[in-house]
Design a protein around this nucleic acid. Structure first.
Lengths: 137, 137
DNA sequence: ATAGCTGCAAATGCTTTGCAAGGCC
DNA sequence: GGCCTTGCAAAGCATTTGCAGCTAT
């Protein structure tokens, strides 16, 4: 858990004004360890916890948090964005049958053999998604 | 270039009926080396080459080709799917400023340190996207 | 002949936006 | 007070679907 004071500091440090909806959503997002949510998931979860926010505000808040570096957006497949509360460098499993995203709990992953970056460009991020399906065994 | 006979064989072997639109789109897709296109790009390119197809057919064809294993779909970021004519195992650069996808021309890439796959699951595919931005140098 | 395609337009799903009312510093 | 934020509903995009007519085998 994270105290509301800590949360307020977290938001302020990132340059995000701690409004009531942002504090409430921040509590849901950052109060329970690393999470991966879609806008729709966050909305229904918030509503069922008694937080009354519109879906527009959910999107707005997720975007503001992402731009402020509090969340990381993960593209898995068209028409659905996942937001990850773990902004450190790490990779993901994606369970295709369930549409569920998980962190790969291992910081030993290394990618080798990458060619040199094209001239005038630099790497902004490396995304790795390991897609999983049920074992037909 | 690929002859229309070869293209027809390619489609038939994949279990895809070689209709007129499919042959025409197949020519655009497979006639010029490895490509990465969005539906919209393929549509406007086809139209400017005098191929009259509706956007619905573009989507339908891309999906049929993908299911038949002739294309591979790459998720880069919300609201846009890229289709790659290179279906072999390889990874991508994504140039963020231009929305352009490129194959990483190197088969030396290896990923090590992956933890064992969760029980009952197997890896269906590993996607790696190296995001590039302009070097601010 | 008949199962499968295509095109059109309407529908869908996710996300953004315009604008008036309200909240934060 | 003034600027930023919220909510609602409407708009926007990319993609899919229903259906009547057409095509490949």
């Amino acid at each position: 858990m994270m105290s509301s004071t800590d949360l307020e500091i977290k938001l302020r440090s990132a340059g995000v004004r701690p409004t009531k909806p942002r504090m409430a959503l921040g509590g849901v997002l950052f109060g329970n360890g690393d999470r991966h949510v879609t806008a729709e998931q966050l909305h229904s979860e918030s509503v069922s916890e008694g937080i009354r926010v519109s879906l527009a505000t959910i999107y707005n808040t997720l975007n503001v948090f992402t731009e402020a570096g509090l969340l990381r957006e993960v593209a898995v497949e068209g028409h659905k964005s996942y937001f990850d509360t773990n902004t450190s460098n790490h990779y993901h499993y994606y369970v295709e049958d369930e549409g569920r995203l998980m962190d790969i709990e291992n910081d030993q992953i290394t990618v080798s053999g990458l060619p040199s970056t094209p001239a005038g460009m630099k790497v902004s991020r490396v995304d790795i998604i390991v897609r999983l399906e049920k074992d037909a065994e």
